[in-house]
């Protein structure tokens, strides 16, 4: 009995100490973690629609349709929309966040989720680094700081400027060997985008 009491006491003390330490660490890191989360969200929105930053957003939920209206200035009419398009590709549902203006022209697109075949369909999120070992060494030796260039996934970058109403797989360069995944992205954007435009007008 005495032993049992000792076990309970020891475990209790160990847990108490652990809880106290973790509470301390959590209080210190929480504001930082939340700031990081907000930054990540803002970044995703900004990539889809640069105008959305600092402007009023309004979430619309209409049955299955769910999207954000972006208001610029104090207008009553939204200047654009941000939505998430989903469609089954080759082996997974591909989710794309898309921003478009009121006329349907795409301001940016970014794949949020996909689980396509590595090396084929998964290339829809591929980013080609332009930095080589040679250029990096050169840069290191010359000590001249070159401005960081932002590299974006090349597949979704080609959507910029296209119109959701008539964007088609034939207008863009599909990923080699992954026609089905490429098509799914394009079609999901066209379907969802047109649906929202129709609902708004």
């Amino acid at each position: 009995m005495n032993n049992l009491l000792r076990f309970v006491l020891v475990l209790f003390l160990v847990n108490l100490a652990a809880a106290a330490i973790l509470a301390g660490v959590y209080t210190v890191t929480r504001p930082k973690i939340e700031a990081q989360k907000k930054m990540a969200e803002a970044k995703a929105l900004k990539e889809a629609m640069p105008e959305s930053v600092g402007n009023r957003l309004e979430k619309v939920e209409d049955g299955d349709v769910e999207y954000w209206k972006v208001f610029k200035d104090e207008n009553y009419r939204p200047s654009g929309y941000v939505f998430i398009a989903k469609k089954y590709g080759y082996s997974s549902v591909i989710e794309t966040m898309v921003g478009m203006k009121r006329d349907g022209s795409i301001t940016g697109a970014r794949i949020l989720n996909q689980n396509e075949t590595p090396g084929l369909g998964a290339k829809i999120v591929e980013i080609l680094s332009d930095k080589t070992l040679k250029s990096a060494l050169k840069g290191l030796l010359s000590r001249k700081k070159e401005p960081e260039k932002k590299i974006l996934p090349y597949f979704t970058e080609q959507f910029k400027g296209a119109n959701v109403k008539n964007i088609d797989i034939s207008d863009i360069d599909a990923i080699t060997g992954a026609t089905i995944s490429s098509k799914a992205v394009v079609e999901s954007i066209r379907e969802k985008g047109s649906e929202i435009l129709n609902a708004e007008q």
Binding site: V10, L11, V14, N15, A18, L22, V25, T29, K32, Q36
Partner: peptide, 25 residues
Amino acid sequence: KIRIPCFIVIIATFVTIVELVMKAY
């Protein structure tokens, strides 16, 4: 007799610290 649960709690504490710090910074 209760060393394993104690060890696990100690390890888990450190892991959680690492996780929180990593998420924040």
